[in-house]
């Protein structure tokens, strides 16, 4: 079991309010991702749930029981830190054993769990090594192993992949998703990388300056962002925002159109521009097009499109894919 409810939770450091009162419901077994730019309060929110920081006001309940003032140890949650936070003076086995030892678990039972976790995480051959002798990915797995042996009611991940190189990150992402499917335990995952958020989450919580901008499934956020911030933050490459005649024509202060929803033509279209840099990825081509008024439009075209630097092209947004925003940035 691992449902977590935050009600009117807020946090201030001195006079600075990092998190204004917010409500959030996390259901049992869900994979929830907190995403937002750095400084948006996502890590603080996670630490509030973990019990590593005090709430300034509000309440947190875990599985229906009030946990607002419970110490981290008593909450039954496990956490994987950005730096992995392994105990450098203990072997891998002792690292994984540590939470069990603290819980006073019988050593035979503990060993059974450690071996099972090691098998799942491919750590069996490394149990007697020190963290210092492991690669980044292996350390990450030890940190996860230390978390899973406790059979916590929920896992908390604080940007766990940001210290890994790109290829390993993709691998670990899959492994964590796999783990979630196997264990079916609630996971709360903090990241600033919207790709991680989109690929892993059941439910994404977009945070900005401490406020929850939107909560929803990845596709909901992609297809119907509630405001300009979410629209711009979710999706890669970023959504294009256009003001002026094109927006007025559609009764909006500004409109947004994703690069993949623009049709390119060499003869005619709504916008006319000059091709700047074009990035050929093989499957796709990303075009950075300069408009006459100085603006830029990014376009995602098919991989076989042949355009040259300085060439003039025309672009038209797909009408049904256009997002319209009012002067406050809210979706109309």
């Amino acid at each position: 079991m691992g449902s977590i409810t935050l009600s009117k939770v807020s946090k201030s450091f001195g006079d600075v309010e990092v998190i204004p009162p917010l409500d959030l419901e996390i259901n049992d077994g869900e994979f929830v991702v907190f995403v937002g730019p750095s400084g948006c309060g996502k890590s603080t929110l996670l630490r509030l749930i973990a019990g590593l920081e005090d709430l300034t006001s509000g309440a947190i309940s875990i599985d229906g029981a009030d946990a607002t003032n419970a110490s981290p140890a008593k909450r039954g949650l496990a956490m994987v830190f950005q730096s992995y936070a392994l105990y450098p003076h203990m072997s891998v086995r002792k690292n994984i054993n540590f939470p069990l030892k603290m819980a006073g678990m019988d050593q035979a039972e503990a060993d059974k769990r450690i071996n099972a976790a090691a098998k799942v995480l491919n750590l069996t051959d490394y149990l007697d090594r020190r963290p210092g002798q492991l690669s980044g990915g292996q350390r990450q797995r030890v940190a996860i192993g230390r978390a899973i042996v406790r059979e916590p009611s929920a896992f908390l991940f604080d940007e766990p992949l940001s210290n890994l190189d790109a290829a390993l990150r993709v691998n670990m992402r899959l492994e964590i998703c796999d783990l979630h499917k196997t264990l079916a335990t609630t996971m709360i995952y903090v990241t600033h990388d919207q790709v991680e958020a989109m690929t892993m989450a059941d439910k994404i919580v977009v945070l900005h300056d401490g406020y929850i901008e939107q909560v929803g499934s990845p596709l909901e956020l992609y297809e119907s962002p509630v405001n300009k911030f979410v629209a711009g933050f979710i999706g890669s490459p970023k959504m294009n925002f256009v003001t002026g005649p094109s927006a007025q024509k559609r009764n909006a202060d500004s409109i947004g159109i994703r690069p993949e929803h623009i049709d390119v033509s060499s003869e005619s279209g709504e916008w006319e521009g000059v091709v700047g840099v074009s990035e050929h990825l093989g499957s796709d081509t990303f075009l950075h097009v300069k408009l006459a008024d100085g603006g830029m439009i990014n376009v995602r075209a098919s991989g076989d499109l042949k355009v040259k630097y300085g060439e003039k092209i025309f672009m038209s947004p797909q009408e049904e894919r256009i997002h319209r925003f009012d002067p406050q940035g809210l979706t109309i």
């Binding site: 450091f13 019990g51 005090d54 110490s71």
Partner: peptide, 8 residues
């Protein structure tokens, strides 16, 4: 930064 508990 820390909790009230650890501060006391």
């Amino acid at each position: 930064m820390a909790t009230q508990q650890s501060r006391s």
